[in-house]
Simulated assay, not measured.
Amino acid sequence: MKVNSTELQNNFGKYLMLAAQEDIIITRNGMEIAKLSAIRDAVSDCGAVPGTVMEKAKVYGCDGRKASYEEFLELTKDTEERYEYIDGEIYLLASPKTAHQIALTELFGVFYNWFQGKECTPLVAPYDITLKRNPENINVVQPDIMVICDLEEKLDENDYYQGVPALVVEILSEGTRRKDLIKKLDLYMSCGVREYWIANPINREVTVYLFADNNISSSITYRKSEIAQSYIFEGLSAELGRIFK
Results as ranks from 00 to 15, higher is better:
117 G>D: 04
27 T>Y: 00
11 N>T: 01
211 F>H: 07
189 M>Q: 14
25 I>K: 12
228 A>Q: 11
138 I>S: 03
129 I>L: 06
19 A>I: 10
228 A>D: 09
237 S>T: 11
239 E>K: 13
228 A>R: 15
38 A>R: 07
189 M>Y: 04
241 G>T: 14
73 L>I: 01
154 K>S: 13
30 G>V: 13
233 F>Y: 15
68 S>R: 08
168 V>M: 14
186 D>I: 12
124 V>S: 12
30 G>I: 14
138 I>R: 03
42 A>V: 10
116 Q>L: 10
129 I>V: 13
143 P>V: 05
19 A>R: 04
155 L>S: 01
119 E>W: 07
49 V>Q: 11
104 L>P: 02
59 V>M: 15
22 E>Y: 04
213 D>M: 04
234 E>R: 14
201 P>C: 08
135 P>F: 11
196 Y>K: 07
176 T>I: 00
145 I>F: 06
98 T>P: 07
146 M>N: 08
73 L>K: 09
56 K>G: 01
54 M>A: 13
221 T>D: 01
146 M>A: 15
163 G>F: 11
232 I>P: 14
77 K>M: 08
219 S>Q: 15
46 C>F: 15
177 R>T: 08
37 S>I: 08
83 Y>K: 07
221 T>A: 01
88 G>E: 01
192 G>D: 10
128 D>E: 10
244 F>W: 01
245 K>T: 12
243 I>A: 03
167 L>R: 05
64 G>D: 05
239 E>A: 13
137 N>I: 15
2 K>T: 13
221 T>S: 02
66 K>V: 03
235 G>N: 01
63 D>P: 02
195 E>M: 12
1 M>D: 02
15 Y>R: 09
150 D>A: 04
160 Y>E: 11
75 L>K: 05
7 E>M: 09
206 V>L: 06
150 D>F: 07
95 S>Q: 11
121 T>H: 02
210 L>F: 03
178 R>G: 11
96 P>C: 07
160 Y>C: 13
42 A>Q: 12
11 N>E: 01
66 K>G: 02
148 I>K: 09
78 D>Q: 10
196 Y>G: 06
128 D>G: 06
198 I>C: 05
70 E>Y: 10
221 T>H: 00
156 D>T: 08
175 G>M: 05
195 E>D: 13
140 V>K: 15
156 D>M: 07
11 N>I: 01
29 N>V: 00
60 Y>N: 05
79 T>H: 00
78 D>C: 10
165 P>D: 03
114 W>H: 06
143 P>E: 13
181 L>M: 14
194 R>A: 12
166 A>V: 14
62 C>P: 06
167 L>Q: 09
50 P>Y: 14
110 V>N: 05
36 L>Q: 08
110 V>T: 06
235 G>E: 02
155 L>T: 02
236 L>F: 10
95 S>T: 15
124 V>I: 15
239 E>W: 07
18 L>K: 15
63 D>Q: 06
137 N>C: 13
32 E>R: 08
159 D>A: 14
70 E>W: 09
193 V>F: 00
211 F>W: 09
32 E>C: 03
138 I>D: 08
153 E>W: 06
71 E>R: 01
90 I>P: 01
159 D>H: 13
143 P>S: 04
106 E>W: 00
185 L>R: 13
1 M>I: 07
117 G>E: 03
187 L>G: 00
227 I>F: 10
49 V>Y: 09
